[in-house]
Design a protein around this nucleic acid. Structure first.
Lengths: 176, 176
DNA sequence: AAACCTCACTTGCATGATGCTAGTGACAAG
DNA sequence: CTTGTCACTAGCATCATGCAAGTGAGGTTT
C-alpha cells in the first residue's frame, strides 16, 4: 500500500522524515557532505540503481535540499549541489554518525570528526548556546506559539508522566 | 525488490540507518521520548496499523533500542521501554527536530526545547567538548583506526576536493 | 451470566515503492 | 567509425507497507 503521508502531522520530526525518512536520502546527503556532486559519483559510491537515484535526487531537488545545476553546455552535463537547507542538515548527520560509531562499530572507531588544522579529535556535545550548559534530562520539549491542541495535549501528557517518574525514581536521568 | 542491505557497509551512518532508516522507527523513538511505552499508546498516537507496529517494535527490540517488559501477570500485559542505546538517540532526535522546525514550519515554532525548571528556551548548538568551540566547516570527518581502504580513499578524495574548493572560493563556509 | 470492554496482538490480502537489467541520447576521443 | 563518458529512461519482478478483520486472555457492567 501507499506509504502513509506525514505531511499533515504537526510535528517537526514527522515533517523532516517526509524529506529524509528513507535510507537513500540520508546517504546522498552524507556523500554530498563528502563533496560529491555528480550523478555517476553518487551511483558509484552508493551502488544505487540509476532509476532510484533519479527518483531520490528529483525529490530532494523539489524539497529544496539539492540544486540541479548545469556545469557544461557542449556536452550537456549536470551536477547536484547542496542548498543552504541541505547544508543545515550537517549537525543531524554528525550526531547520527556519532551514534552509529558508539553503538554499531564493534571493530573500533571507523571515522571521527577532527579539526582540519590541528587534526585534533572532536568530542561532540549538544549544548544550550544561551546558557552554555549541555542538554540533559532537565530539558524538555515545550509547545511553541504555533502548536495545536493535539500537540499541547501530547506534551502535557508527557510532562505529567515525567513528574510521576520523578516521584517514583527521584534520581533517574538516562541522559547525562 | 528487496531493500538493499546496508549492514556490510563500513560507515556509521549506513549502520545507523539499518536500524532507524524508516519513518516509523524514528517516530516510535520520538513517542518513547515523550514517555509512551505501551502498544496501544503508540498505535493511537501514530495511527499506525497494528501489524506494522508489531513488526517495527520486534525489530527494534532485536536491535537493542527497546526492551519488551511484562508489567502485569494476571491480565498478561507488556510495555516497551527504551534501553540505554535507545536513550542515546535523543541528541539525534533533538537535532532533527531543530532542523524540521527551522525549515518545515512555515506557521511558526511548533515545539522547542526548554529548561524544565526555568522554562527558558534552549538554543541548540553542537560543540567540541574538548575545545568548547562550535562545530564548523573547519572540522572534517577523518579515518579512524578501524577504517578500511575504501573508506580511507573516500575520505582522502573528500579532503582533496575541500582543498580545491578553498583555492577557488577562499572564504566559503556554509556551516557557520 | 450475558454482554461488553481493554490490551496486545495475528492473519490475509492488495498495491505501490524498491530495485535489477537493459537501453538511450548527446557528445568527445582515438 | 568504434569506443567511452555522463546522465539518465523504460520495463518489469517482488517485497515491504498498510488496510480490514479477527483473536485470546482477562476485566467490568448490567
Amino acid at each position: 500500500m501507499k506509504r502513509t503521508s506525514l505531511q499533515t502531522r504537526q510535528c517537526p520530526v514527522a515533517r523532516s522524515l517526509e524529506r529524509v525518512g528513507d535510507q537513500w536520502s540520508v546517504l546522498l546527503l552524507r556523500d554530498a557532505f563528502y563533496g560529491l556532486t555528480r550523478f555517476d559519483e553518487f551511483q558509484k559510491s552508493l551502488a544505487i540503481a540509476p532509476n532510484m537515484l533519479t527518483r531520490r535526487l528529483t525529490q530532494m531537488v523539489e524539497d529544496g535540499l539539492f540544486e540541479r545545476r548545469q556545469y557544461s553546455e557542449k556536452p550537456p552535463r549536470f551536477e547536484y549541489v547542496l542548498t543552504p537547507r541541505g547544508w543545515d542538515f550537517r549537525p543531524v548527520m554528525l550526531t547520527l554518525m556519532n551514534w552509529g560509531n558508539r553503538h554499531f562499530a564493534p571493530e573500533g572507531t571507523i571515522v571521527y570528526l577532527a579539526e582540519t588544522a590541528s587534526g585534533a579529535a572532536v568530542q561532540l556535545q549538544l549544548i544550550d548556546a544561551n546558557s552554555g550548559q549541555p542538554i540533559s534530562g532537565q530539558h524538555a520539549i515545550t509547545a511553541g506559539p504555533a502548536a495545536n491542541d493535539r500537540m499541547r495535549q501530547r506534551l502535557e501528557a508527557s510532562r505529567l508522566r515525567r513528574e510521576q517518574n520523578l516521584r517514583q525514581f527521584p534520581v533517574q536521568d538516562h541522559q547525562p
